[in-house]
Design a binder for these strands. Sequence first.
DNA 1: TATGAATGAGCGTTCATTCAT
DNA 2: CATGAATGAACGCTCATTCAT
Lengths: 201, 201, 201, 201
Amino acid sequence: MTQTSAGRLSDDVPLPDRLLAVATRMFAEKGFESTSVQEIVNAAGVTKGAMYHYFGSKDDLLYEIYHRLLGLQMRRLEQIAGGTGSAEERLRAAALDVLETSFLYLDDFTVFFRSTHLLPRDRREAVRAERRRYHECFRDLVEEGQREGSLRAHTPADIAVHFFFGTVHQIGAWYRPGGRLKTRTIAEHYVDLLLNGLKQA
Amino acid sequence: MTQTSAGRLSDDVPLPDRLLAVATRMFAEKGFESTSVQEIVNAAGVTKGAMYHYFGSKDDLLYEIYHRLLGLQMRRLEQIAGGTGSAEERLRAAALDVLETSFLYLDDFTVFFRSTHLLPRDRREAVRAERRRYHECFRDLVEEGQREGSLRAHTPADIAVHFFFGTVHQIGAWYRPGGRLKTRTIAEHYVDLLLNGLKQA
Amino acid sequence: MTQTSAGRLSDDVPLPDRLLAVATRMFAEKGFESTSVQEIVNAAGVTKGAMYHYFGSKDDLLYEIYHRLLGLQMRRLEQIAGGTGSAEERLRAAALDVLETSFLYLDDFTVFFRSTHLLPRDRREAVRAERRRYHECFRDLVEEGQREGSLRAHTPADIAVHFFFGTVHQIGAWYRPGGRLKTRTIAEHYVDLLLNGLKQA
Amino acid sequence: MTQTSAGRLSDDVPLPDRLLAVATRMFAEKGFESTSVQEIVNAAGVTKGAMYHYFGSKDDLLYEIYHRLLGLQMRRLEQIAGGTGSAEERLRAAALDVLETSFLYLDDFTVFFRSTHLLPRDRREAVRAERRRYHECFRDLVEEGQREGSLRAHTPADIAVHFFFGTVHQIGAWYRPGGRLKTRTIAEHYVDLLLNGLKQA
DNA sequence: TATGAATGAGCGTTCATTCAT
DNA sequence: CATGAATGAACGCTCATTCAT
């Protein structure tokens, strides 16, 4: 997992991490299938053998990117959801956090939402299961808000979560660093649109 | 462009259309890069030569899917945007329409938002330019609504459009026909969340 | 067979000739194998069917180029060799003539000496037999000159003919129309080098 | 570069050299375009991947044949031209040497003078530049002979070089090992014809 | 640990040729 | 006479992966 804002990958970064960082960057830029193992190891300054020593296959690289990202997201969400404050406050915080994380790990997200279908079936289902848990955790927060009355019950929580995550996952498809819109601005408006949409009209 | 709900592709469908329909289906299912030209022509019951008689390359197939879809969408949006009624009413109608179209051409959309990056540079930019026009047309509708006062001016129209289209484009990533949620239900709630989010709190 | 200096190929040229002319030009420029039948018929402004109506195959096109060229050369040589004057005079005239013909039909010659090996075996041997007759006719002239005493007998006539034809056949490999050297100049010096080389030291 | 007279290509020859030798043989026999990569690697007893490990493309194989041959020739010519003796003596030695080399590397030469036009433009021009240097070195020798008076000045040196090299390059088109004419005989007569042709009549 | 030569299966594409119309 | 859709076989090339060293 590579922070978009992170600097150079100095030689003292452990090789597996360096390989993952390089792979993430290239997958985001050219796509998983258009990036050869040779290109990855060249960019990382090692040979194929080294890569196959740490990763069983090219698919493993992809899976590992997903796995790390999902783990990170889940930990953050659980911490926020389990915190103090009203459901609405925690939902707002979680929504803002997922957006900020998305901007921070933009390449990882881009790869994720573009290439899941390329994983072998079993891996794909493992990823989906992790995603589902994450989705449900977020959904519970929405339902809690509906029960406490701060959010209207009219919208099924599942749909609201699909609605919000859908647009979060698409960010990598249009957002370009250095453009006119700042990430913080986008994040705040997105959260606002979600929360306002869930309030009484 | 293939309606997901369409029936069999009988032999009297012109070969180019049949190839496009088959390709759309397979690209949506397994991804562009994981679908070989051989598989496509096998499924269409012809040989590679026949395909290359009509399409210059595998990329052309992809581009043609995009091109047809974008043309269809643009025509529909222009008709709705140029219709009668308040800006809010037309925005609501347009939002509902793009959702219904998305469900109808789910495979085409899935391919679109997953594989644009695989097009050669020039084609990719042609597609982006078409998308931009579409985006701007929709954005104008939002701005008109803000000027007429039915929508709050707080949210920049550009962001609102990215917000909405983002989630529309992700539908293919999670929606499965035959599932618990009906397309009409989803569409209505999505439109409602958008419009409600854009109203005064 | 196309005269390099010939003008446009107007529509009233019989189709077979137009096809041969176009093919000769393209074969000389890009090589036989790198020129597709489609390109030839496009350049000639007809369709494949038309070409296959007149020529049984792409190889036939090549063979016909050779056949016409060899026929032309043989007729010219026989006329010169059977003329009046000393053997040396007739040899000089024949040598000059073959050079001038080579410049005039430069494309045809270029194709000839580059692509003979691409003909099917039987055709290739037919061409070789025609070449051999031509070679022998020229050789007889050299031997006649040696018998009459104007040429030294030291050089085997066969070798002299290979020597001269070798360089004639290579002209297309280096000569470029419009360059510094004029065809007439080259031809005269080549003939001079041959005849002088065959004289008593 | 393969000596025509060389024996079998035992397994201990490095693979790149073995591939080059096999390719040279086949290109000379059937032509570059009519020889598939598959045939080459079959004959060398390896798979395509092995070939592409060492050569970037089929064109590279061709270029390498040229490059090695040109390097060899240039080195030999420079050594002879820079030696002692009159210009005429060095010219005679150089002419004899290029002929003997041509017979020794007959396949390489055959490929060279038949397939240069099949190289990609940049490679083709690199080869032409190398050829030009070679041509100029030889031409300088002729001009030196003209200045020292042993050769007549009547013939432009450039034309004389084209004349001689032309026929040298065609040798592969007609000479067959094992035939009636011996290489040494041919070489001596060719050199004699050149030198005698350049002497005062 | 790490190398890099080599594999083997598959890829997108080309093209001379055929044939129903 | 001429068309052009379609074939079928081959082509150059790629690449994830393996394995002797």
